[in-house]
């Protein structure tokens, strides 16, 4: 059971702008941007509403990522493939 190396864990959830960030780092960074924009007074109401909705989407997605409880441990093989690494501990190997 090997997968080619994939760049990031999180895939874009259903029905979402593909340009929207999907990694936790990117989402949280975007959230900070959104909050500072909302707290500045340059935004018009229409835009503020769009930002608010986008922000809520990021919060939901980030919470989903953070609710993951099983550490996924994999091994990078010399072939460039990845396979779950059995660490002899109860992590089930992820994937």
């Amino acid at each position: 059971m090997t997968d080619p190396v994939e760049k990031k864990v999180a895939k874009a959830p259903e029905g979402q702008d593909p340009a929207e960030p999907t990694t936790l780092e990117a989402r949280l960074r975007r959230l900070e941007e959104i909050m500072s924009q909302l707290e500045a007074d340059e935004v018009d109401v229409e835009r503020a509403l769009a930002l608010f909705e986008e922000g809520v989407r990021h919060v939901r997605a980030a919470e989903k990522i953070l609710s993951e409880t099983e550490l996924r441990v994999e091994e990078l093989l010399s072939s460039g493939k990845v396979r779950p690494l059995d660490t002899g501990e109860q992590d089930g190997g992820g994937a």
Binding site: I65, T69, L71, E74, E75, L76
Partner: peptide, 8 residues
């Protein structure tokens, strides 16, 4: 626990 660990 949400992170992925890639061991070499």
């Amino acid at each position: 626990p949400w992170v992925r660990v890639l061991v070499r």
